[in-house]
Design a binder for these strands. Structure first.
Lengths: 156, 156
DNA sequence: GTCCATGCAAATGATTTGCAGTATC
DNA sequence: GATACTGCAAATCATTTGCATGGAC
Protein backbone atom coordinates (compact mmCIF):
# COMPACT_ATOMS: atom_id res chain seq x y z
CA UNK A 1 0.00 0.00 0.00
CA UNK A 2 2.84 2.37 0.82
CA UNK A 3 4.31 1.50 -2.55
CA UNK A 4 1.12 2.69 -4.20
CA UNK A 5 1.42 5.99 -2.41
CA UNK A 6 4.79 6.30 -4.08
CA UNK A 7 3.23 5.57 -7.45
CA UNK A 8 0.56 8.24 -7.01
CA UNK A 9 3.10 10.73 -5.76
CA UNK A 10 5.08 10.25 -8.96
CA UNK A 11 2.03 10.52 -11.18
CA UNK A 12 0.89 13.75 -9.56
CA UNK A 13 4.37 15.21 -9.90
CA UNK A 14 4.57 14.11 -13.50
CA UNK A 15 1.44 16.13 -14.23
CA UNK A 16 2.83 19.14 -12.39
CA UNK A 17 0.40 18.93 -9.49
CA UNK A 18 1.32 19.34 -5.87
CA UNK A 19 1.30 16.17 -3.87
CA UNK A 20 -1.10 16.54 -0.97
CA UNK A 21 -2.36 14.17 1.67
CA UNK A 22 -5.92 14.70 0.39
CA UNK A 23 -5.08 13.69 -3.19
CA UNK A 24 -3.21 10.62 -2.08
CA UNK A 25 -6.07 9.65 0.20
CA UNK A 26 -8.68 9.93 -2.56
CA UNK A 27 -6.57 7.79 -4.87
CA UNK A 28 -5.88 5.25 -2.16
CA UNK A 29 -9.51 5.04 -1.10
CA UNK A 30 -10.58 4.28 -4.64
CA UNK A 31 -7.73 1.85 -5.18
CA UNK A 32 -8.48 -0.12 -2.06
CA UNK A 33 -11.99 -0.81 -3.31
CA UNK A 34 -11.54 -1.03 -7.06
CA UNK A 35 -15.03 -2.35 -7.55
CA UNK A 36 -16.89 -0.06 -5.19
CA UNK A 37 -17.83 2.75 -7.60
CA UNK A 38 -18.15 5.33 -4.84
CA UNK A 39 -19.89 8.69 -4.90
CA UNK A 40 -18.07 11.85 -3.82
CA UNK A 41 -19.85 11.73 -0.50
CA UNK A 42 -18.94 8.10 0.08
CA UNK A 43 -15.29 8.84 -0.63
CA UNK A 44 -15.52 11.78 1.77
CA UNK A 45 -17.06 9.66 4.53
CA UNK A 46 -14.49 6.93 4.07
CA UNK A 47 -11.55 9.34 4.29
CA UNK A 48 -13.03 11.18 7.25
CA UNK A 49 -12.68 8.08 9.39
CA UNK A 50 -8.90 8.48 9.50
CA UNK A 51 -8.59 12.13 8.48
CA UNK A 52 -11.57 14.08 9.80
CA UNK A 53 -10.23 17.49 8.75
CA UNK A 54 -10.86 16.84 5.05
CA UNK A 55 -13.62 18.93 3.46
CA UNK A 56 -16.22 17.74 1.00
CA UNK A 57 -15.35 20.56 -1.40
CA UNK A 58 -11.79 19.29 -1.49
CA UNK A 59 -13.00 15.82 -2.38
CA UNK A 60 -15.01 17.30 -5.25
CA UNK A 61 -12.07 19.39 -6.43
CA UNK A 62 -9.71 16.44 -6.18
CA UNK A 63 -12.08 14.15 -8.02
CA UNK A 64 -12.35 16.65 -10.82
CA UNK A 65 -8.59 17.01 -11.10
CA UNK A 66 -7.97 13.27 -11.04
CA UNK A 67 -10.65 12.70 -13.68
CA UNK A 68 -9.04 15.21 -15.98
CA UNK A 69 -5.72 13.43 -15.52
CA UNK A 70 -7.49 10.12 -16.24
CA UNK A 71 -6.21 8.72 -12.96
CA UNK A 72 -9.81 7.95 -12.05
CA UNK A 73 -12.93 7.32 -14.15
CA UNK A 74 -16.27 9.00 -13.80
CA UNK A 75 -19.46 7.01 -14.28
CA UNK A 76 -23.21 7.47 -14.00
CA UNK A 77 -25.72 4.76 -13.27
CA UNK A 78 -28.82 6.89 -13.27
CA UNK A 79 -29.37 6.85 -9.53
CA UNK A 80 -28.71 10.56 -9.21
CA UNK A 81 -25.06 10.28 -8.24
CA UNK A 82 -21.86 10.47 -10.17
CA UNK A 83 -19.59 7.61 -9.19
CA UNK A 84 -15.87 7.08 -9.49
CA UNK A 85 -13.45 4.22 -9.84
CA UNK A 86 -9.69 4.03 -9.95
CA UNK A 87 -8.26 4.23 -13.45
CA UNK A 88 -6.07 1.69 -15.14
CA UNK A 89 -2.89 3.58 -14.74
CA UNK A 90 -0.56 1.28 -16.61
CA UNK A 91 -2.34 1.51 -19.95
CA UNK A 92 -2.59 4.50 -22.25
CA UNK A 93 -5.77 6.58 -22.14
CA UNK A 94 -8.67 5.09 -24.00
CA UNK A 95 -7.33 1.58 -24.06
CA UNK A 96 -8.63 0.06 -20.90
CA UNK A 97 -11.64 -1.85 -22.14
CA UNK A 98 -13.31 -1.87 -18.83
CA UNK A 99 -17.02 -2.52 -18.72
CA UNK A 100 -19.88 -2.77 -16.28
CA UNK A 101 -22.77 -4.93 -15.28
CA UNK A 102 -25.45 -2.91 -13.52
CA UNK A 103 -28.12 -4.61 -11.43
CA UNK A 104 -31.48 -3.01 -12.10
CA UNK A 105 -32.75 -4.09 -8.70
CA UNK A 106 -30.01 -3.29 -6.15
CA UNK A 107 -27.86 -0.97 -8.33
CA UNK A 108 -24.79 -3.05 -7.65
CA UNK A 109 -22.09 -2.52 -10.26
CA UNK A 110 -19.74 -5.29 -11.30
CA UNK A 111 -16.80 -4.57 -13.55
CA UNK A 112 -15.42 -6.84 -16.18
CA UNK A 113 -12.71 -6.70 -18.76
CA UNK A 114 -13.15 -7.92 -22.23
CA UNK A 115 -11.89 -6.94 -25.56
CA UNK A 116 -15.04 -7.25 -27.52
CA UNK A 117 -15.34 -4.33 -29.77
CA UNK A 118 -12.04 -4.03 -31.57
CA UNK A 119 -13.62 -5.05 -34.85
CA UNK A 120 -16.70 -2.93 -34.37
CA UNK A 121 -14.69 0.22 -33.78
CA UNK A 122 -13.07 -0.17 -37.16
CA UNK A 123 -16.25 -0.88 -39.07
CA UNK A 124 -18.11 2.01 -37.43
CA UNK A 125 -15.21 4.25 -38.26
CA UNK A 126 -15.36 3.27 -41.90
CA UNK A 127 -19.10 3.73 -42.13
CA UNK A 128 -19.40 7.05 -40.33
CA UNK A 129 -16.04 8.76 -40.49
CA UNK A 130 -15.95 8.65 -36.73
CA UNK A 131 -12.54 7.98 -35.22
CA UNK A 132 -13.25 5.80 -32.23
CA UNK A 133 -10.72 6.00 -29.43
CA UNK A 134 -12.53 4.26 -26.61
CA UNK A 135 -15.64 2.35 -25.83
CA UNK A 136 -17.74 1.50 -22.88
CA UNK A 137 -20.21 -1.31 -22.60
CA UNK A 138 -22.86 -1.40 -19.93
CA UNK A 139 -24.98 -4.47 -19.44
CA UNK A 140 -28.19 -4.16 -17.45
CA UNK A 141 -29.83 -7.02 -15.67
CA UNK A 142 -30.28 -8.71 -12.34
CA UNK A 143 -27.43 -9.97 -10.18
CA UNK A 144 -27.36 -13.44 -8.73
CA UNK A 145 -28.94 -12.35 -5.44
CA UNK A 146 -31.65 -10.15 -6.91
CA UNK A 147 -32.41 -12.54 -9.74
CA UNK A 148 -33.33 -15.15 -7.15
CA UNK A 149 -35.50 -12.84 -5.10
CA UNK A 150 -37.10 -11.30 -8.13
CA UNK A 151 -40.81 -10.94 -7.69
CA UNK A 152 -42.75 -11.12 -10.89
CA UNK A 153 -44.54 -7.96 -11.76
CA UNK A 154 -47.78 -8.07 -13.63
CA UNK A 155 -48.38 -4.96 -15.67
CA UNK A 156 -51.69 -3.36 -14.87
CA UNK B 1 -47.63 12.92 -37.66
CA UNK B 2 -51.28 12.76 -36.68
CA UNK B 3 -51.05 9.01 -36.97
CA UNK B 4 -48.26 9.03 -34.41
CA UNK B 5 -50.39 11.01 -32.01
CA UNK B 6 -52.86 8.16 -32.29
CA UNK B 7 -50.12 5.68 -31.45
CA UNK B 8 -49.06 7.57 -28.35
CA UNK B 9 -52.63 8.01 -27.26
CA UNK B 10 -53.09 4.25 -27.35
CA UNK B 11 -49.86 3.56 -25.49
CA UNK B 12 -50.71 5.97 -22.70
CA UNK B 13 -54.17 4.47 -22.37
CA UNK B 14 -52.73 0.99 -22.34
CA UNK B 15 -50.62 1.93 -19.32
CA UNK B 16 -53.60 3.48 -17.58
CA UNK B 17 -52.38 7.07 -17.90
CA UNK B 18 -54.51 9.97 -18.90
CA UNK B 19 -53.88 11.30 -22.36
CA UNK B 20 -52.92 14.96 -22.14
CA UNK B 21 -51.73 17.48 -24.65
CA UNK B 22 -48.48 17.88 -22.68
CA UNK B 23 -47.63 14.17 -22.80
CA UNK B 24 -48.36 13.91 -26.50
CA UNK B 25 -46.26 17.00 -27.16
CA UNK B 26 -43.25 15.63 -25.27
CA UNK B 27 -43.45 12.36 -27.17
CA UNK B 28 -43.91 14.13 -30.48
CA UNK B 29 -41.06 16.53 -29.87
CA UNK B 30 -38.68 13.68 -29.17
CA UNK B 31 -39.98 11.65 -32.08
CA UNK B 32 -39.56 14.45 -34.55
CA UNK B 33 -35.87 14.65 -33.72
CA UNK B 34 -34.96 11.07 -32.95
CA UNK B 35 -31.26 11.83 -32.92
CA UNK B 36 -31.34 15.07 -30.98
CA UNK B 37 -30.90 13.75 -27.45
CA UNK B 38 -32.54 16.74 -25.83
CA UNK B 39 -32.40 17.94 -22.25
CA UNK B 40 -35.56 18.64 -20.26
CA UNK B 41 -35.09 22.34 -20.81
CA UNK B 42 -34.56 21.93 -24.55
CA UNK B 43 -37.76 19.91 -24.79
CA UNK B 44 -39.52 22.61 -22.77
CA UNK B 45 -38.25 25.40 -25.03
CA UNK B 46 -39.22 23.50 -28.15
CA UNK B 47 -42.76 22.86 -26.94
CA UNK B 48 -43.20 26.42 -25.70
CA UNK B 49 -42.96 27.72 -29.26
CA UNK B 50 -46.39 26.33 -30.09
CA UNK B 51 -47.78 25.85 -26.59
CA UNK B 52 -46.45 28.56 -24.29
CA UNK B 53 -48.61 27.60 -21.31
CA UNK B 54 -46.61 24.45 -20.62
CA UNK B 55 -44.59 24.44 -17.40
CA UNK B 56 -41.06 23.13 -16.96
CA UNK B 57 -42.16 21.05 -13.98
CA UNK B 58 -44.68 19.29 -16.18
CA UNK B 59 -41.96 18.47 -18.67
CA UNK B 60 -39.89 16.94 -15.86
CA UNK B 61 -42.86 14.98 -14.54
CA UNK B 62 -43.79 13.79 -18.01
CA UNK B 63 -40.24 12.75 -18.79
CA UNK B 64 -40.10 10.73 -15.61
CA UNK B 65 -43.37 9.01 -16.37
CA UNK B 66 -42.43 8.22 -19.95
CA UNK B 67 -39.04 6.88 -18.85
CA UNK B 68 -40.68 4.51 -16.42
CA UNK B 69 -42.97 3.30 -19.17
CA UNK B 70 -39.90 2.89 -21.40
CA UNK B 71 -41.50 5.08 -24.03
CA UNK B 72 -38.41 7.27 -23.90
CA UNK B 73 -34.81 6.57 -22.87
CA UNK B 74 -32.73 8.53 -20.44
CA UNK B 75 -29.02 9.09 -21.11
CA UNK B 76 -26.08 10.93 -19.65
CA UNK B 77 -23.06 12.15 -21.56
CA UNK B 78 -21.22 13.74 -18.68
CA UNK B 79 -21.93 17.32 -19.69
CA UNK B 80 -24.09 17.94 -16.63
CA UNK B 81 -27.43 17.30 -18.27
CA UNK B 82 -29.66 14.29 -18.49
CA UNK B 83 -30.80 13.80 -22.05
CA UNK B 84 -33.71 11.93 -23.58
CA UNK B 85 -34.52 10.17 -26.80
CA UNK B 86 -37.63 8.51 -28.11
CA UNK B 87 -37.80 4.80 -27.32
CA UNK B 88 -38.19 2.01 -29.80
CA UNK B 89 -41.80 1.39 -29.17
CA UNK B 90 -42.34 -1.60 -31.40
CA UNK B 91 -39.91 -3.87 -29.58
CA UNK B 92 -40.23 -5.33 -26.09
CA UNK B 93 -38.38 -3.61 -23.25
CA UNK B 94 -34.69 -4.31 -23.16
CA UNK B 95 -34.43 -5.48 -26.72
CA UNK B 96 -33.70 -2.37 -28.64
CA UNK B 97 -29.93 -2.62 -29.07
CA UNK B 98 -29.49 1.03 -29.56
CA UNK B 99 -26.04 2.49 -29.11
CA UNK B 100 -24.20 5.77 -29.24
CA UNK B 101 -21.16 7.40 -30.66
CA UNK B 102 -20.12 10.40 -28.58
CA UNK B 103 -17.77 13.00 -29.99
CA UNK B 104 -15.23 14.00 -27.37
CA UNK B 105 -14.73 17.35 -29.04
CA UNK B 106 -18.17 18.75 -29.89
CA UNK B 107 -20.28 16.38 -27.74
CA UNK B 108 -22.39 15.42 -30.72
CA UNK B 109 -24.19 12.11 -30.21
CA UNK B 110 -24.85 9.77 -33.08
CA UNK B 111 -27.03 6.71 -32.60
CA UNK B 112 -26.54 3.41 -34.30
CA UNK B 113 -28.16 0.02 -34.18
CA UNK B 114 -26.25 -3.16 -34.12
CA UNK B 115 -26.73 -6.50 -32.58
CA UNK B 116 -23.30 -7.11 -31.30
CA UNK B 117 -23.53 -8.48 -27.87
CA UNK B 118 -26.01 -11.32 -28.03
CA UNK B 119 -23.28 -13.87 -27.44
CA UNK B 120 -21.56 -11.87 -24.77
CA UNK B 121 -24.71 -11.56 -22.69
CA UNK B 122 -24.99 -15.29 -22.49
CA UNK B 123 -21.37 -15.93 -21.59
CA UNK B 124 -21.35 -13.20 -18.94
CA UNK B 125 -24.53 -14.66 -17.51
CA UNK B 126 -22.96 -18.07 -17.23
CA UNK B 127 -19.78 -16.74 -15.64
CA UNK B 128 -21.35 -14.41 -13.10
CA UNK B 129 -24.91 -15.53 -12.50
CA UNK B 130 -26.04 -12.18 -13.81
CA UNK B 131 -29.20 -12.25 -15.89
CA UNK B 132 -28.59 -9.69 -18.58
CA UNK B 133 -31.70 -8.08 -20.01
CA UNK B 134 -30.27 -5.16 -21.93
CA UNK B 135 -27.05 -3.59 -22.97
CA UNK B 136 -25.78 -0.26 -24.02
CA UNK B 137 -22.60 0.45 -25.91
CA UNK B 138 -21.06 3.87 -26.01
CA UNK B 139 -18.16 4.59 -28.32
CA UNK B 140 -16.08 7.67 -27.71
CA UNK B 141 -14.08 9.38 -30.38
CA UNK B 142 -14.03 12.24 -32.81
CA UNK B 143 -16.66 12.86 -35.44
CA UNK B 144 -15.83 13.51 -39.05
CA UNK B 145 -15.86 17.29 -38.62
CA UNK B 146 -13.88 17.41 -35.40
CA UNK B 147 -11.49 14.69 -36.48
CA UNK B 148 -10.49 16.84 -39.40
CA UNK B 149 -9.94 19.94 -37.35
CA UNK B 150 -8.23 18.00 -34.61
CA UNK B 151 -5.03 19.58 -33.48
CA UNK B 152 -2.46 17.05 -32.44
CA UNK B 153 -1.69 17.08 -28.79
CA UNK B 154 1.69 15.97 -27.62
CA UNK B 155 1.54 14.37 -24.22
CA UNK B 156 4.01 15.83 -21.77
C1' DG C 1 8.81 33.11 0.59
C1' DT C 2 5.56 32.22 -3.18
C1' DC C 3 1.81 30.24 -4.94
C1' DC C 4 -1.26 26.52 -5.06
C1' DA C 5 -4.48 23.66 -2.27
C1' DT C 6 -7.63 23.43 1.53
C1' DG C 7 -11.73 24.18 4.53
C1' DC C 8 -15.67 26.46 5.50
C1' DA C 9 -19.85 28.64 4.27
C1' DA C 10 -22.48 30.62 0.90
C1' DA C 11 -24.01 30.24 -4.03
C1' DT C 12 -25.53 27.75 -7.98
C1' DG C 13 -28.44 25.16 -10.92
C1' DA C 14 -30.86 21.06 -12.34
C1' DT C 15 -34.63 18.64 -10.67
C1' DT C 16 -38.58 17.89 -7.32
C1' DT C 17 -42.56 19.02 -4.66
C1' DG C 18 -46.84 21.46 -2.49
C1' DC C 19 -50.90 23.33 -3.60
C1' DA C 20 -54.84 25.37 -5.87
C1' DG C 21 -56.92 25.33 -10.34
C1' DT C 22 -58.05 22.60 -14.61
C1' DA C 23 -58.78 18.93 -17.81
C1' DT C 24 -59.60 13.98 -18.66
C1' DC C 25 -62.48 10.03 -18.40
C1' DG D 1 -68.43 14.72 -11.09
C1' DA D 2 -64.25 12.47 -9.23
C1' DT D 3 -59.65 12.10 -9.76
C1' DA D 4 -55.45 12.69 -11.96
C1' DC D 5 -52.65 16.31 -14.30
C1' DT D 6 -50.99 20.96 -14.71
C1' DG D 7 -48.68 25.45 -13.67
C1' DC D 8 -46.49 28.24 -10.62
C1' DA D 9 -43.41 29.20 -6.93
C1' DA D 10 -40.87 27.51 -3.31
C1' DA D 11 -37.84 23.70 -1.76
C1' DT D 12 -34.22 20.30 -2.37
C1' DC D 13 -29.83 18.49 -3.00
C1' DA D 14 -25.56 17.42 -5.48
C1' DT D 15 -21.93 20.11 -6.90
C1' DT D 16 -19.28 24.55 -7.37
C1' DT D 17 -17.21 28.78 -5.86
C1' DG D 18 -15.21 32.86 -2.94
C1' DC D 19 -12.18 33.85 0.37
C1' DA D 20 -8.97 33.64 4.13
C1' DT D 21 -5.71 30.23 6.04
C1' DG D 22 -2.34 26.57 5.64
C1' DG D 23 0.96 23.59 3.26
C1' DA D 24 4.05 22.12 -0.69
C1' DC D 25 8.21 23.12 -3.10
Amino acid sequence: MAGDTEKYRDLLKKYGCKVTKQRILVLRTLEEKPDSHMTAEEIYDEIKVDFPEIGLATVYRTIQLLSELHLINRMQVDDGYTRYEIGHLEEPVGKHHHHHLVCLQCHKIISFEEDLLEGLEKSIGEKTGFVVVDHEVTLYGYCKECGGKLIEKTTT
